[in-house]
Amino acid sequence: MSGIVDIVIEDERWEAFGLEALAERAVAAALQAVGPGGAGYSVVLMGCDDARIAALNADFRGKPQPTNVLSWPSEERAAEEAGGMPDLPEPGDAEEPCELGDIAIAFETCEREAAEQGKPMAEHVTHLVVHGLLHCLGYDHVDAADAAVMEGLEVRILASLGLSDPY
């Protein structure tokens, strides 16, 4: 593994896109923003295509269509009450970092959404990697209070990277 993100490339377009470097930067910024910093943590990010993410979406969410990003936290970390902060895990060390979970991101959906929103794909993908990581940390957007916390964090993290508000 290089750094805090273990990359699994299933669609070679992600390799040409530079997903690994983008993800390392996005994950490090997100971990810095929520407090623990990047040292001692790891996440797996799979760059795949729409067919693969549609199969995963069907298997895990009962929705047999592609989506932009999916995440699987390694353990439940959600806040006790709506609008609260999740319980962040203790960091591991260099040999055994705390595993936060897995994220999958689909090339075609990301490319299409970026075009529809009139923004660079790198900016959109950065947002989605941050979004997926926050899910792995226990943040959610199921209700309005939780959405306000999560979206506010996303905006702050993206601003720290010089990116605009995605909302």
Score class of each variant (00 low, 15 high):
2 S>L: 15
2 S>K: 13
3 G>F: 09
3 G>I: 07
5 V>P: 00
5 V>Y: 00
6 D>P: 03
7 I>S: 06
8 V>G: 07
8 V>Y: 06
9 I>Q: 01
13 R>K: 12
14 W>A: 01
15 E>L: 15
15 E>I: 09
16 A>R: 10
19 L>M: 06
21 A>H: 04
24 E>V: 09
24 E>S: 07
24 E>T: 10
24 E>K: 09
25 R>P: 01
28 A>F: 02
28 A>W: 00
29 A>Y: 01
29 A>M: 05
29 A>I: 02
34 V>E: 04
37 G>I: 02
38 G>M: 05
38 G>R: 05
40 G>E: 06
41 Y>Q: 07
42 S>L: 08
43 V>G: 00
44 V>I: 15
45 L>E: 03
51 A>V: 15
51 A>W: 11
53 I>N: 01
53 I>G: 00
54 A>T: 02
54 A>N: 00
56 L>W: 03
57 N>E: 11
59 D>H: 12
60 F>S: 13
65 Q>R: 13
65 Q>M: 08
67 T>A: 10
68 N>F: 03
68 N>C: 08
69 V>L: 08
70 L>W: 02
70 L>G: 01
70 L>K: 00
72 W>S: 11
72 W>R: 11
73 P>C: 13
73 P>D: 09
77 R>L: 09
78 A>E: 13
78 A>V: 14
78 A>N: 10
78 A>H: 10
79 A>P: 01
80 E>H: 13
80 E>A: 14
82 A>N: 12
85 M>P: 01
89 P>F: 03
90 E>W: 05
91 P>T: 11
91 P>W: 02
92 G>T: 04
95 E>K: 08
95 E>T: 15
96 E>H: 11
96 E>N: 12
96 E>Q: 13
96 E>T: 14
100 L>T: 07
100 L>W: 04
103 I>R: 01
103 I>S: 04
103 I>P: 03
104 A>N: 06
105 I>C: 00
107 F>T: 02
110 C>F: 01
111 E>W: 09
111 E>L: 12
112 R>A: 11
116 E>R: 13
119 K>E: 15
120 P>F: 07
120 P>W: 06
120 P>R: 09
120 P>D: 11
121 M>L: 12
121 M>A: 09
124 H>N: 08
126 T>M: 07
126 T>L: 05
127 H>G: 14
127 H>K: 14
127 H>V: 12
128 L>P: 00
129 V>T: 09
129 V>A: 08
131 H>R: 06
134 L>N: 04
134 L>K: 05
136 C>A: 10
136 C>S: 05
138 G>Q: 01
139 Y>Q: 05
139 Y>W: 07
142 V>E: 09
143 D>M: 12
145 A>F: 03
145 A>G: 07
145 A>K: 12
145 A>H: 07
146 D>M: 05
147 A>E: 11
149 V>D: 02
149 V>H: 00
151 E>G: 02
153 L>Q: 08
154 E>I: 03
156 R>A: 15
157 I>C: 03
158 L>N: 00
160 S>Q: 11
162 G>I: 06
162 G>F: 07
162 G>H: 12
162 G>N: 09
164 S>W: 10
167 Y>E: 14
